[in-house]
Nucleic acid binder design. Structure first.
Lengths: 183, 183
DNA sequence: CCAGAATGAGACATCAACGTCTCATCTGAT
DNA sequence: ATCAGATGAGACGTTGATGTCTCATTCTGG
């Protein structure tokens, strides 16, 4: 059943995003199955990691799609993107920390595409005069990923309430920490 | 000699900040010494990790001191802090990713103190009306660390020029991505 | 109720990293 | 030149995680 794979992947993300070096015992226990069954579903640790990474990238790509980041006002598009991606923030945190995944050419290419889409959003926003041009689109994109990952960790550790996460992320990334003097 | 320890620690940070699971072989090679000598300097892997963490925290504490974050305008204080901490951004990236260090009570306490100081800066800024109050001081502090770590990785990987890093970090964290309409 | 499949528990071998050791070589001071 | 100390290279046993196996138990469909 696909449900098994998915639920195991979900549990694996929960453990691996926090501790990428977690043992298979721990992952299996978190998934509520035995280590033997885990091996029956995934040939080995490497395959499991790859699957988790691929799932994360697919979900991230789906979030980019549903947010329609290529359309309309860039600021609104970025807010939609944040709303769409925050539920999978833990997954993004895992992707950010696991650079070993990028050894795989297929995963690497999928990542490059999504990264380029995000960078394209910031670039479009800059060209339309919505985003600041003193900061490079590459850096804005980088900061976006850093903060998404940070939200994922903070929520997992209970330092940030899930219902506040999207708002906090959007407001900080868009508006910064300084209070607006005139608005 | 103290120089040996320091240079080895420096090299270890460079490797470990990017891959916390790097083998001792790799660390020794990065430091230009043999694994045997590495063992002569540090009793084992755990001791090395602890030393790297402690060094990072000491340097971070020193950056907080030199920036005098408890004094004067919070915005200027934050800019000073960023200037002071950016040279050790890779070290902070390591600290951010290595939550295993927090098992050590001594290191954990040192970390708590520094974290509280940063949070205190944001809180002070909010009370003075400089920083936004819609975002919690805890989240602002969290975002600060996330972005510092992000800068560390980006510089290490060549995605961000070191001379731009402090400016990029300060402008994004303080001003956000949106272009100011009226200023 | 029964047969077959799926699962859990655990044993077992394998392998990689770690920690310790020895020995040859190199360096530097006298 | 010589000797003491430091270093590099590598061997060796230990440890822990992994991958594979078997067997008893449980679940499921007929």
């Amino acid at each position: 059943m696909a449900t098994d794979r998915d639920s195991v992947l979900e549990a694996a993300v929960g453990v691996l995003s926090r501790r990428p070096t977690a043992h298979l015992d721990e992952i299996a226990r978190a998934a509520g199955i035995s280590r033997a069954t885990l091996h029956r579903i995934f040939p080995g640790r490497e395959a499991l990691i790859r699957e988790v990474g691929a799932t994360g990238l697919r979900r991230f790509a789906a979030a980019l799609d549903t947010a329609e980041i290529e359309t309309g006002d860039p600021e609104a598009a970025l807010r939609r993107l944040i709303e769409a991606v925050v539920p999978d923030a833990a997954l993004c945190a895992f992707l950010a920390g696991e650079n070993q995944l990028y050894d795989d050419p297929e995963i690497n290419e999928l990542w490059e595409v999504q990264d380029a889409r995000v960078r394209g959003l910031f670039l479009r926003g800059q060209q339309l005069g919505v985003f600041r041009i003193e900061l490079s689109a590459g850096w804005l994109s980088e900061a976006f990923f850093d903060l998404v990952a940070g939200v994922g960790w903070a929520v997992q550790d209970g330092r940030l309430a899930p219902r506040d996460s999207a708002f906090s992320l959007a407001e900080l990334l868009l508006g910064g920490a300084l209070r607006r003097k005139s608005e």
